[in-house]
């Protein structure tokens, strides 16, 4: 212990304390603070970058989910639109068909009506022609047979009667 104390030098102690404290203060100001701040900033930066990467990843996932949803919606819409279009087409065809049917029916009815009138006209004409023919016949009969007038008249009457029956 005595030797230890004998080794103690006030000068060295004095200088060591002064120099060390000076070094400590200088380094604190010019080295340790900037170094630790820089390292801290860098670590913060890395942490932030990782965080934002994670965030970006999550956003991407969200975006993808959104896209998926949109796609699904679009698909559903397309489906609906196509269904509507199909329905419309079917309805149009149906309508067209029914209209055509109606038209056709109408045409047929008209045709039938006109046929009927034609027929009636034809019959009337036939009748008139028959009448003319009968008159011609009668003329001929009259011409040919003036004698048997009574008999001839009977015949005419019966013929006319027959024609009326028809």
């Amino acid at each position: 212990m005595e030797k230890l104390l004998g080794e103690f030098s006030i000068g060295l102690f004095f200088w060591q304390t002064i120099l060390f404290v000076a070094l400590l203060l200088l380094l604190r100001k010019f080295a340790w603070k900037p170094i630790l701040n820089a390292v801290n900033d860098r670590e913060e930066g890395i942490k932030n970058a990782l965080d934002s990467a994670e965030k970006a990843k999550r956003e991407m996932a969200n975006l993808q989910a959104d896209n998926e949803k949109l796609l699904k919606e679009a698909r559903a819409e397309r489906e609906a639109m196509m269904k509507e279009a199909r329905d419309l087409k079917n309805k149009m065809i149906e309508d067209a068909k029914s209209e055509a049917q109606e038209q056709a029916n109408k045409l047929i009815a008209q045709a039938q009506a006109s046929i009927e009138t034609e027929k009636k006209a034809a019959i009337a004409e036939l009748k008139s022609q028959v009448a003319n023919l009968s008159i011609d016949i009668a003329e001929k009969v009259v011409k040919d047979e003036l004698s048997n007038k009574e008999k001839q008249m009977k015949l005419v009457e019966s013929m006319l009667g027959e024609a009326k029956l028809n």
Partner: peptide
């Protein structure tokens, strides 16, 4: 005795070295 002894000189030099390094 407050001399700049060999050890004081070395302490000073080490201090300078550290200051410039850091």
């Amino acid at each position: 005795d407050l001399s700049i002894t060999k050890n004081v000189a070395v302490i000073f030099l080490v201090g300078l070295l550290m200051f410039f390094l850091f």
